[in-house]
């Protein structure tokens, strides 16, 4: 469900790409520092986006070169200096936990060996994060239950499903207030809706093979067939629509030091990813982003 919110590498300036990498590494460092080395496993592009988005207005990131486990020889630039990093780290641990629980549930006892291992691996990190953000944890649990229930009754409204997931992301703006909160909620809601639908399209093949519920399959009543070109065009428009509404909300926010990269993600990165997912090439592309 994660990893779709990323910049279009080819359109980033060198300076911006270095900054993006520093934020990615900074988030990884924050995860390790706050939740132990095991938590670094949950590092995702999506939460790098969240950390940049929640970054407070005028603050500049503190950059310093450090070594880490992933690159012990060469030093990498790491950004720090705002609470948004800690919040993004906490949210990502909680979401990763519930995502793993969901996978275990879907896959059954034997096929979920890896997922059960991962669950054990991040349990301590999850407990700590859940204690720090109990309301967010409760909200994710609620939404996951809702999704589970809707899957069981075979809900065929794509929006109804996406809504449950999008609300989780919208809740990431809980620490803000006033107009800024409203803007962030709308922005994150549409990013969440976009992620949910893109993920559903991406999983179509896999879900069909495993005989699992897939919201896009239900919406277009595919019953095992592939998406027609017409359906794909329709999905592309509805995804672009969410993207446009997120971007329109973004333009109302105050600029911060990550704005150019965020614009790249919202206007270009998402378009690129949805195009790749719909054409089935997403898994094969190498985009040169940090790993």
């Amino acid at each position: 469900m994660f990893g779709y919110i990323r910049p279009a590498r080819g359109e980033l300036r060198v300076k911006e790409f270095e900054l993006y990498k520093s934020c990615y590494c900074g988030l990884c460092r924050t995860l390790g520092k706050l939740y132990g080395p095991a938590a670094r496993m949950v590092l995702q592009y999506d939460f790098t986006f969240l950390a940049m988005l929640l970054w407070e207005g005028g603050k500049k990131p503190v950059l310093c070169a450090k070594r880490c486990m992933a690159s012990p020889c060469k030093k990498h630039c790491e950004a720090s200096g705002d609470d948004s990093m800690a919040a993004a780290a906490g949210y990502s641990v909680i979401l990763a936990w519930w995502k793993i629980c969901d996978t275990i549930h879907d896959e059954g006892f034997f096929r979920s060996v890896f997922a059960r291992g991962a669950k054990l691996w991040i349990r301590r990190a999850y407990r700590k994060a859940a204690k720090q953000y109990p309301e967010f944890d409760a909200r994710v649990r609620e939404s996951m239950n809702e999704l589970f229930h809707l899957e069981k009754v075979g809900e065929n409204r794509l929006d109804r499903m996406a809504d449950a997931f999008a609300k989780i992301l919208a809740y990431c703006a809980e620490s803000r207030s006033g107009d800024e909160k409203r803007i962030l909620e709308q922005l994150l809601y549409h990013v969440g809706r976009w992620i949910y639908i893109v993920d559903a399209v991406d999983d179509l093949e896999k879900d069909r093979k495993n005989g699992q519920y897939n919201p896009v399959d239900r919406r277009f009543a595919l019953n095992g067939k592939s998406l027609s070109e017409e359906d794909k065009a329709y999905l592309e428009i509805t995804l672009a629509h969410s993207q446009n509404l997120a971007a329109a909300a973004f333009e109302l926010l105050k600029e911060n030091c990550w704005s150019e990269i965020l614009r790249n993600i919202l206007y270009l990165g998402m378009t690129q990813v949805s195009g790749q997912v719909l054409s089935g090439t997403f898994r094969h592309e190498r985009d040169g982003l940090p790993r």
Partner: peptide, 8 residues
């Protein structure tokens, strides 16, 4: 509400 598919 942001339910664009239904809206359409």
């Amino acid at each position: 509400k942001g339910w664009l598919d239904e809206a359409q």
